[in-house]
Design a protein around this nucleic acid. Structure first.
Lengths: 130, 130
DNA sequence: CTGTATGCAAACATTTTGCATAAGC
DNA sequence: GCTTATGCAAAATGTTTGCATACAG
C-alpha cells in the first residue's frame, strides 16, 4: 500500500530538489523551491519540481500540507506519524508528537461510531524571535 | 477585530445560500451549493455564492476547510471553537470539542517558545453506516 | 536499447475581480 | 438617492498533463 509502485530513477533534478528541500527547515511551496533552484543555477522545470515533490511525499520523504491560500507546501520530514508547530511569522517548523491527541481522536471517533480513524493537526503560533 | 467591518445587507441570494447550507449537515463546496441552488430554481451567480459563503465565514456563521484536492468546503456551524469528525464515505459531520487537545496544543507550543497559539484539527473516519 | 524523466506550453479547476446594472434601506 | 449586492465574463492562481526529446540503467 505504501510501496512505491514506480521505482524512482535518480536524476540530477530530483537530487537538486531533495537537497534544496533539505536545506531549509521550513515548509515551502513548489514555486519557492523552483525559484531557489533557478537562483542557484539549476535550470529545473517547474513541472519537474512538482513531480519530484509529489514523488517524495509518496515515498514518505517529505510532508505536504496546504496553506490558508490553498498553496501546497512541502518539507523534508522524518518518518512516522507526527505533527507540526509552525511559526506564522517566519515559517520555522518544529515536529511534535502528540500521543495524547492520538488517543483523544481515536476515542472520540469511536464514541460516535467511526472507525478507520485518521486526523490532520497543525499548530500555528508566533515563535520567540518575533 | 471580529466585528463585520462591512454591515451585511440582507438579500434573497444570501438567504438562499444560508438556507441551502443549513439544509445539509455535511461540508460542501461553493460549486455544490451553487449547483443545488440552481437545481432548486434559484438562479444565483457563482461569484455571489462565493461571496456569500466568505461572508458567513467572516461572521462565524459557517466553517470552511480545505479538502485534499484543494477545494474549500463550507458547513453551517455552531459558534465557538470546535472541531469536526467527518465520515470519509458519506461526508456526515459531527462537531466535537476537545479541551484535552486545546491544552495539549497550547502547552507544547509554549514549551517551544511559541505564543498566540492556534491550531487546525480535523478527524476523519468511516461512520457506522459503512 | 528500452523506458522513465524532463521541459515546455497548453490545459485545468477553482477562486477572485472589474464593471455595469439591480436592489436594499 | 446613495450605497451595497449581483451577475457575467475575464483574469488570476496554483497545479497538472501531453508530447517530443534527453538521459538513466
Amino acid at each position: 500500500m505504501s510501496a512505491p509502485s514506480t521505482p524512482r530513477r535518480s536524476t540530477k533534478q530530483r537530487d537538486a530538489v531533495a537537497t534544496e528541500l533539505a536545506s531549509e527547515p521550513t515548509f515551502r511551496s513548489a514555486q519557492d523551491v523552483h525559484a531557489a533552484l533557478r537562483a542557484s543555477g539549476s535550470p529545473v522545470g517547474l513541472a519537474t519540481v512538482y513531480r519530484a515533490l509529489q514523488g517524495m511525499v509518496e515515498d514518505g520523504a517529505a510532508d505536504a500540507l496546504r496553506t490558508g491560500d490553498g498553496e501546497v507546501v512541502y518539507r523534508r520530514c522524518s518518518q512516522g506519524h507526527h505533527h507540526h508547530l509552525v511559526c506564522r511569522e517566519c515559517g520555522r517548523t518544529v515536529e511534535v508528537e502528540g500521543p495524547t491527541v492520538e488517543r483523544w481522536a481515536t476515542r472520540v471517533a469511536e464514541q460516535h461510531g467511526f472507525h478507520d480513524v485518521s486526523h490532520t493537526l497543525e499548530v500555528f503560533g508566533t515563535c520567540d524571535r518575533h
